[in-house]
């Protein structure tokens, strides 16, 4: 048991951070607590990462703990699986989620199945961090949201934070978790929340309550959703950047929606989902990823199976289109205020 566990979060001093700083802080805390935590990835060492998430860590913990790797995602994940089998707790970074695919065989066939196929003799306690999501003019290969590829794999956990506070607490929990965790960081909200109004000046985390991050160690359990806003008109199931977009659209429409930030897709907080939909009778699912076979389909299906007699309207699903992520037509692709607003209107009409 860590000393800090005794400290209530309300008493712990806090500091306003952006999501990058919160992730950096989580890595710092865990490296300080556990000598087996090591960070590896392209540009993560001396340079501190292309998004600065690992800045200063190599200087503080040395090259044995934080090191640059060859540009080879299969090698990064494969080596991390071997390191984890030895007994380390590796935190590999994949520079963009769009580039995780060369490492998929190692993640799906190896990390996810290690505990099962060896009946617990070998485990893969690794946390793969990777920036994901669009809204930054990243085009086809710097914008993807491939979470459904991972939620479909038995043995992997998938976590997506939406605030600096959650990013730190969830990352610490992910690193401590003895199962392999895919930790997707919505890069659109690294520096500030995003309400979907791309023409407005960008915001920072400075005045946002989610940017208030406790100092030192704390963790947010995996598998627990966060109620962003309580309400009775409908349930909105959402995660990552879209949490903020949904919040803004529903506020602007003056709809008393209950917004649930899932935070962990696997394991999913099914109780929170059921409780809310049973209360509101309506459900809206939102994600940036493409529609067909996206994680939204799983959510819709679960709600339909488990809350059918409480539903007062068809479940709505707002997602990216079934196309590769475009560059110039980004804001026509992005599931923004108009698309969400229309779905909200349909639900309210029923």
């Amino acid at each position: 048991m860590l000393e800090e566990d005794a400290v209530s979060l309300h008493e712990a001093p806090t500091r306003q951070m952006n999501m990058i700083e919160a992730i950096n802080d989580a890595l710092d805390v865990m490296m300080g607590h556990d000598p087996d935590v090591v960070v590896l990835g392209e540009d993560v060492g001396y340079f501190g990462g292309v998004f600065r998430a690992t800045a200063g860590l190599q200087k503080k913990y040395g090259k044995n703990r934080v090191f640059d790797t060859p540009i080879n995602e299969c090698g990064i994940i494969g080596a991390a699986v071997g390191m984890a089998a030895y007994g380390l707790r590796p935190v590999p970074e994949i520079q963009f989620a769009d580039y995780i695919y060369p490492g998929l065989d190692q993640l799906i066939s190896e990390a996810a199945r290690m505990r099962y196929r060896s009946a617990g003799q070998f485990t893969s306690p690794l946390t793969v961090r990777s920036p994901f999501g669009g809204g930054i003019f990243g085009g086809q290969t710097h914008s993807q949201s491939p979470e459904a590829l991972f939620t479909h794999v038995a043995g992997l956990k998938t976590v997506i934070p939406s605030t600096p506070h959650d990013a730190k607490g969830l990352l610490i929990a992910a690193i401590e978790d003895n199962d392999p965790v895919i930790f997707f960081e919505p890069k659109r909200i690294y520096n500030g929340p995003f309400d979907g109004n791309y023409d407005s000046p960008s915001k920072t985390w400075k005045s946002h309550p989610g940017g208030k991050v406790p100092e030192g160690y704390y963790s947010i359990p995996l598998g627990k959703a966060r109620t962003v806003r309580e309400g009775s008109a409908m349930t909105v199931l959402v995660y990552g950047t879209m949490v903020h977009v949904a919040e803004a659209v529903l506020a602007q429409k003056g709809v008393d929606a209950e917004i649930i930030d899932l935070r962990t897709l696997v394991p999913l907080d099914i109780e929170a989902v059921e409780k809310s939909v049973e209360k509101t009778g309506k459900c809206l699912v939102i994600h940036e990823a493409t529609k067909t076979s996206g994680f939204g389909a799983e959510l819709v299906s679960l709600v339909q199976e488990r809350c059918f007699y409480h539903l007062e309207a068809p479940i709505e699903r707002v997602t990216g289109f079934d196309t590769p992520y475009p560059h110039s037509l980004e804001w026509a692709y992005f599931p923004g205020p108009v698309r969400i607003g229309e779905a909200v209107d349909r639900l309210m009409k029923d």
Binding site: G75, A79, G82, Y86, G87
Partner: peptide, 11 residues
């Protein structure tokens, strides 16, 4: 193969 390399790196 890469897992063995990773294990030896950990060692």
């Amino acid at each position: 193969f890469p897992q063995a390399v990773g294990w030896s790196m950990a060692s």
